[in-house]
Simulated assay, not measured.
Amino acid sequence: MVTRPVRPTTQIQTVVGLDPNVAAALRSHLAEVADTAVLTIVEEVPSYAGAWSGRMGEVIRNAVQLALGGFLTLATRQDAEAPPKAPAIEGAYQLGRGEARSGRTVEALLAAYRIGARASWRDMSGVAVEAGVDSGQLARFAELVFAYIDELSAASVAGHTDELESSGRVRQRNLERLARALLTGAPADAVAAAAERADWTAPATLTALVLPESQVSHALTALDPRTLQPSDDVPGLPEGHASLLVPGTGSATSRRTLLRALRGTDAVVGPGVPWLDAAASYRRALRCSDLGIEGLVDSDEHLASLVLTADASARDDLRARVLAPLADLRPSTAEKLTDTLRSWLLHHGRRDAVAEELFVHAQTVRYRVGQLREIYGDRLEDPAFVLDATLALA
């Protein structure tokens, strides 16, 4: 495969000129700093959790150590015109290509750079201070760290882009088509064929998310790299919103993990369903978003509301039928008796609980329930009426 030449996007002019003793101390801690950076990335960027085993894990470890080694070479130079360490730039470029082939987004890659830079700077600055670096050198050292990270991350983004523009572009388009087929409930054989074309291994379950478009990039950095996102408009999506299909969350444990990963977003999380039934999860998430609840919303926690709002006009008709015997009363009296009936049903006739909820005396509750018995008669003991009234007034 032909790749374009990798050149630095900026020329790093900062000269630190580290004292040889400081440089030696830093070099002796190089492997430890690299390992800490890797572990921090794993902890803070969930899409990298499974990336450290096998060949790709070795590539990433080598890239981190190569980058840190190249940085120390820059930090000890005395000549401002000396070029950045070419092998580190090339390594960053190849890392970007590999991340694209692994299905990770450029947002996740840049998040890994930011977090790795922060962890590396914390450890290296501590070692440098212990080795006696002066304040002027420490300031230039910090400037060089962030200029160097900009250089490496730009090279990785270039590699990621090149890979997608070549072998990755077709697969990405196939993944987007697969997502749309799932969300629109296409026939199972068509969906299976789309998954095969996209070289996508189906998980046991999928969970649909509905969230603002502005939060998609942030969410993707925390989600499984196999997460699907349609590029075309999907029926039913509110304007300015997007949908994602996240593998897994069929168990309570994995669902809690997903909800933790989405903290800080306004995502509505549908149920985990068999992967071919993803459209059902999407429909549930859409209906839950219509409830108008703010913040991160777990649809599993709002099932009763979803049932009660499934057919709004039918519920209005049911409420009107249940409350018809109160229609001839004064509005204020009808309202008080409606509140009492609702509380009496939900508290199974426990007078003290009803009084506490309505902030009235227990004798007042007794009087109102007596009025209700006069109006409704034996229907208050009829299980069918009790069910209708509970649904209508809940």
Results as ranks from 00 to 15, higher is better:
residue 252 A to S: 15
residue 244 L to Y: 03
residue 249 T to H: 14
residue 234 V to I: 14
residue 247 P to E: 03
residue 222 A to G: 09
residue 218 H to G: 13
residue 234 V to G: 04
residue 233 D to G: 06
residue 226 R to T: 11
residue 235 P to L: 03
residue 235 P to A: 09
residue 247 P to C: 07
residue 239 E to D: 15
residue 258 L to G: 04
residue 205 T to D: 15
residue 245 L to K: 11
residue 241 H to S: 14
residue 218 H to W: 10
residue 214 S to Y: 12
residue 257 T to D: 15
residue 252 A to T: 12
residue 256 R to T: 13
residue 241 H to A: 10
residue 215 Q to D: 09
residue 224 D to K: 00
residue 232 D to I: 02
residue 244 L to R: 01
residue 235 P to R: 09
residue 256 R to G: 14
residue 224 D to V: 10
residue 240 G to S: 10
residue 246 V to A: 09
residue 213 E to T: 13
residue 259 L to S: 09
residue 252 A to L: 12
residue 223 L to H: 08
residue 255 R to G: 03
residue 225 P to V: 03
residue 208 A to Y: 04
residue 251 S to I: 01
residue 216 V to K: 11
residue 259 L to E: 05
residue 235 P to V: 02
residue 249 T to Q: 13
residue 253 T to H: 08
residue 240 G to R: 05
residue 258 L to H: 01
residue 256 R to F: 00
residue 239 E to A: 15
residue 234 V to A: 01
residue 251 S to L: 12
residue 218 H to L: 13
residue 219 A to K: 04
residue 221 T to P: 01
residue 227 T to P: 02
residue 255 R to C: 06
residue 240 G to Q: 10
residue 260 R to M: 08
residue 245 L to V: 00
residue 210 V to Y: 00
residue 236 G to L: 08
residue 250 G to S: 06
residue 246 V to E: 05
residue 235 P to T: 02
residue 237 L to C: 05
residue 230 P to S: 11
residue 258 L to M: 07
residue 221 T to K: 12
residue 257 T to F: 02
residue 220 L to T: 08
residue 209 L to R: 00
residue 221 T to W: 11
residue 230 P to V: 05
residue 213 E to Q: 15
residue 210 V to D: 01
residue 220 L to A: 09
residue 215 Q to I: 00
residue 245 L to I: 07
residue 254 S to Q: 15
residue 243 S to Y: 12
residue 253 T to P: 03
residue 257 T to A: 14
residue 235 P to W: 06
residue 226 R to I: 03
residue 205 T to P: 06
residue 256 R to I: 11
residue 222 A to C: 09
residue 211 L to T: 01
residue 240 G to L: 10
residue 221 T to L: 06
residue 256 R to V: 11
residue 215 Q to N: 09
residue 237 L to F: 06
residue 242 A to Q: 13
residue 254 S to Y: 08
residue 254 S to W: 00
residue 257 T to H: 11
residue 221 T to A: 11
residue 255 R to K: 13
residue 212 P to K: 10
residue 237 L to Y: 10
residue 217 S to Q: 14
residue 247 P to T: 07
residue 244 L to H: 01
residue 238 P to Y: 07
residue 208 A to C: 07
residue 231 S to Y: 12
residue 212 P to M: 01
residue 211 L to E: 08
residue 229 Q to I: 13
residue 222 A to R: 15
residue 239 E to P: 02
